[in-house]
């Protein structure tokens, strides 16, 4: 069983070597640039990105979508397309980082917050395998919202944008570690509420 498995894998590697040059494999620089640009707008990995521009005054629920309903390029800036247009109370999660000029600044007292770092990139089972998805997927079901080459900072520019069933090939690696935590795992406690004499039975806490 083991050796046959190894054989077939070796065959895959050989095929990989033959075709490697024709598949998009991202260089380290692109990945690093992508990670740093993602991190710049996120307090921690999985946080919603902040709004990098001023949001002026009275809003309707369509205000943000005026630009963010599709990718628009204007004066050198590119608007992100929202991957979740059904969530239209945008500023519920995304907060502006530049208050309007009329609003007085106030001193920020400092923080030692050090959020979880961005995950670098997906993993390939082998050289030709499609990479896994390195990030949380919830509310980002529309992959091409980000993964188009107008966003030069994303490693994302898929070479095959017409194949829109992304998860057919790109899997979520134990994604569940980032999304779905089995409750029993999520509720560990180390102390037990039983005195030493009888700790065998009735041990408290989980």
């Amino acid at each position: 069983m083991r050796s046959s498995h190894r054989k077939s894998l070796n065959r895959i590697v050989l095929v990989a070597l033959l075709f490697a040059g024709t598949y998009p494999v991202f260089g380290k620089e692109v990945a690093a640039k992508s990670v740093s640009s993602r991190a710049e707008r996120r307090s921690f990995y999985t946080a919603p990105p902040v709004i990098p521009h001023v949001v002026h005054g009275w809003q309707t629920d369509k205000t943000c979508l005026t630009c963010h309903d599709q990718i628009r390029q204007w004066r050198g800036a590119t608007s992100m397309l929202t991957p979740h247009p059904e969530f239209s109370n945008c500023q519920q999660c995304h907060v502006q980082q530049a208050a309007p000029t009329w609003q007085p600044k106030s001193k920020f007292l400092g923080s030692s917050w050090n959020g979880l770092a961005e995950q670098e990139k997906g993993i390939r089972a082998n050289l030709v395998a499609p990479p896994t998805i390195p990030h949380r997927y919830l509310m980002r079901e529309n992959c091409v919202a980000c993964h188009l080459d107008v966003h030069s900072n994303f490693p994302a520019s898929v070479e095959h944008p017409k194949r829109s069933n992304c998860q057919q090939c790109h899997m979520m690696p134990k994604a569940n570690k980032f999304i779905l935590v089995p409750l029993k795992k999520a509720t560990k406690q180390t102390v037990a509420n039983a005195s030493s004499e009888n700790s065998g039975k009735n041990s408290g806490g989980k």
Binding site: V50, V95, Q97, A99, P104, F108
Partner: peptide, 12 residues
Amino acid sequence: GRVRELKHAMPS
């Protein structure tokens, strides 16, 4: 008020 992003978003 101790969260940088929230303080920047709504300073005063």
